[in-house]
Every structure is written in C-alpha cells, then in structure tokens.
C-alpha cells in the first residue's frame, strides 16, 4: 500500500496543529515522521487513521479516499498505549484481530508464534493486568500486526521500550518491510530514526521542514560536517577559521563547516591543543539538519526512548 497526503490542514480552536502538509509514503519502505513534541505528528497520524477529519486536504490510500475496507488492512499503534486489564492475552489478541475482520480461528496459531517471539508465551492465559508495563507494550505491538496488515502506523514507537526490546522490534519491522509492508512511524528521537528510516519527513510547528529518502536529504546538505572526539575540553573549536556552527553532544562535537573551509588546517589546529581520538568528515546528522532547517528551535537531543508529553 502507498499513502499520499495532499495539503492537509487541521486547526484546533486557535491553534494550528497541521499546516498544509503534503507527503508521499511509497510501498515497502520504513518511513519516519520526525519532529519535536507538539510538532503535529500525532494529529497527522490521526488524520491518516480517519480518527479526526482534516479541515482541508485529502488523505489517499493507493490513490483512493479512505474507506471502511482500509481499516482492516492497517495496523495502528497509538501514542497512548492501553489494553483491557481484565482480559487474558489470548482473548485480547483474538478480539483485536476480529475487530480487523480476521476470524479467530485464522489467527490462533499466529498468536503463539508472536507470543513466543516476544517472550510472552507463558503468560498466554494470564490477565493483562499481571504483565509489566514493558510486556504490555510488546503485547500491544503484537495486536497491531497480528492481522497481517499491509500498512503499519506506529505513533512514538519507541516510547516506553527498553533497549533490548527496541532491538527486537526493529528486527521485526525490518522483516515486515522486506515482506513488502509499508511502515510509517513517528518519533521525536532523531538518532533512532536516522538508523532505521529509508524515508523521512521532518515537521516543525505543523509544517513540513524537509522530506525525501534518507540519502537524498543528507546529500542535499553534502559532506560538510566534522565529527570530532577529543580528550579534554574541545570548547575552543568554535573560534577556529572555517567553522560555521558547533553542536556539542557532550561525548563528541559536531562541527558544521563554511563552504571551502580548510579541513586540514582545522585538524592541525585542534591537534596542537588537545589529543584527537576521532576526526571524521561526515554527512550532517538529522539533528543538525533539523536545527538548520527549522531555524533555532532545538528538540531535546539526548532523550533516547522516552516521551515527556503533557
């Protein structure tokens, strides 16, 4: 399935949540919608899911308007997670699949397969309330994909998952992608998106900042950055000639260069003052691209894997 948003807009009272957003998600890719909290990611996803209607603009699936049949071919994991506490794991999986039009007898054997993969098989007939928060997240991920959807939409996918489970789910997502499924997810954690996505769309304050395939987006900016790791305080580098901007990531520094900057000279000057552990000419990170494009509205850089929505 492929998905197209055609200049959709949504305003709540006097707040513009999504402003004239257009994007295309081709079939069989991992597509990331990236932006800080409050950028309009969830509103966009809710409009794709037909939970809220756009004020204007169109959402097209395989070139057609949304219809009832579409719901059954989509798996949706909302940002706010939750399950029936009093139902058993098996009951809830079958119920969710039936709501997607899959008869229980067809998915029963897949239930075991997924429970085993997620290390939840022993809890199959336990109630949801007996699971830990992380286990509930995994269960909810299973219910999202159990009915074998063609389009999988995951809002703030990594929130609430520990690194081990993030790896597990990443593997599954890659398998699904290779099987031709289209996967769209949103996150405010740029590092994860950078590792996982084929395509991205960055949004800020309801507007698109940049979109395209990861390679495209990066090449548009060229190899004009230096990743620098030094022993000691590297704060002095901002005063060197040819450096446009310094982003301090604490463990390393990312230096954005002016055009025609002399990288050899920079290396020399740095090496004179401190001991260099790494000096690499690279593409800019999504984070620095975002800062560049969105214009001085930094999302929190270091917050790996948790949401602080209010």
């Amino acid at each position: 399935m492929f998905l197209k948003l055609d200049s959709i807009c949504k305003t709540y009272d006097d707040k513009v949540a999504v402003d004239n957003l257009s994007l295309e998600v081709p079939q069989g890719v991992l597509y990331g919608i990236i932006g800080p909290n409050g950028a309009g990611k969830t509103t966009t996803i809710r409009m794709i899911m037909d939970i809220t209607a756009p004020d204007s603009g169109k959402v097209l699936i395989d070139g057609k308007r949304l219809d009832r049949h579409f719901r059954n071919r989509v798996g949706y994991l909302p940002e706010e997670r939750g399950l029936y506490r009093k139902m058993t794991l098996l009951e809830i999986m079958l119920y969710m699949a039936e709501l997607k039009g899959c008869p229980a007898r067809n998915v029963k054997k897949n239930c075991d397969k997924w429970l085993k993969r997620m290390d939840l098989l022993e809890y199959k007939d336990k109630k949801v309330e007996e699971l830990s928060k992380g286990m509930q997240q995994k269960l909810q991920f299973i219910t999202t994909i159990l009915h074998d959807p063609d389009l999988i939409i995951l809002d703030e996918l990594f929130s609430g998952l520990d690194p081990l489970n993030i790896e597990l789910i990443k593997d599954i997502l890659l398998e699904l992608k290779r099987a031709g499924k289209t996967i769209l997810f949103s996150t405010h954690v740029m590092e994860q998106a950078e590792k996982l996505c084929d395509h991205i769309c960055m949004i800020s304050r309801g507007r698109k900042v940049i979109d395209g395939s990861m390679a495209e987006v990066k090449s548009r900016f060229g190899k004009n950055s230096i990743q620098l790791e030094v022993v000691g305080d590297g704060g002095f580098v901002s005063s060197l000639a040819g450096i446009k901007k310094v982003t301090d990531f604490n463990n390393y520094l990312e230096l954005e260069l002016e055009q025609n900057a002399d990288t050899d000279a920079i290396l020399k000057s740095v090496a004179q003052r401190v001991s260099v552990r790494r000096f690499a000419l690279v593409e800019p990170s999504l984070y620095s691209i975002f800062i560049d494009m969105a214009g001085g509205e930094p999302p929190d850089p270091g917050s790996a894997g948790e949401v602080a929505d209010v």
Partner: peptide, 17 residues
Amino acid sequence: IEEKNSRIMEVLISSVS
C-alpha cells in the same frame, strides 16, 4: 469510561466506527 481511561479507545476507533 474504562476504554477512555485505558486509552484503548483510539485503537478500537481505528477498527470499528
């Protein structure tokens, strides 16, 4: 209220009207 509170409502609404 339970479905609202547990936030399962959003998943349900993406499946049934």
